[in-house]
Design a binder for these strands. Structure first.
Lengths: 107, 107
DNA sequence: AGCAATCGTAAGATAGTACTTACCGTAAGT
DNA sequence: ACTTACGGTAAGTACTATCTTACGATTGCT
């Protein structure tokens, strides 16, 4: 029900950002190191990281001239709960269909 | 790890499609009825439904001249498991950071 | 202080995606 | 058979987001 998931799902709607997140699964990483593993430029990675950060999916920490980015476990716990709840409701909606579909209900 | 989630997250990366999914949470609905509740045209809804269907998030069933669309509970169960697994790994990556961050590990 | 390394941001170009209008096919009703 | 209702598809347009290049700011090193 929360509106946080809106931004999170928007952020995960891009395959490059999902790849970044997967890369961070091995542990925090500075921007440059991260960009080396992708065929796109470092600023592009930086922009993606901003989106992920605004969505709360990643956390950043300055470390000298570098900046480490890592996953935010709480965000993924939140998403898990979201789909847990969603699955329950979807199942209920589905079952009510099988038992008695009322397609032509008026507004 | 499955590639199914790729298409599913792509599909859920659009706010209109998320709104459609939320609408279907109350039960299956024909396309026209669904389109009435949105400020965009029926073909637009139809196109969104195609994306959702290809991602396996919704199921459709012909009913006379109408076509009922409903949520696919299995897809959301799959997403829930995905984030469950993901959360575990993210947590592990996060903990290993706190205990001993190795930022300058060479490629 | 000067230099090198790392990263964020701005501006512009490119590509992708969503939307509309128009059209066609199919099913039900008269 | 004709008409109406419903929905999918095609083509074209508009918008949004992604990417690149260029620049500036901050930190650490000598």
């Amino acid at each position: 029900m929360n509106s946080y998931q809106e931004a999170q799902l928007d952020a995960l709607g891009d395959s490059t950002r999902r790849a970044i997140v997967n890369q961070l699964l091995t542990g925090p990483m500075p921007v440059g190191k991260l960009a080396e593993r992708f065929p796109i430029s470092r600023p592009a990675i930086s922009q993606h990281l901003r989106v992920l950060k605004e969505a709360g999916l990643v956390l950043d920490e300055a470390s000298g001239t570098r900046r480490l980015y890592g996953l935010n476990p709480r965000a993924f716990a939140s998403l898990r709960e979201y789909f847990d709840e969603f699955w329950n409701q979807a199942l209920a909606a589905f079952k009510s269909t099988v038992e008695g579909p009322q397609p032509g209900e008026e507004e």
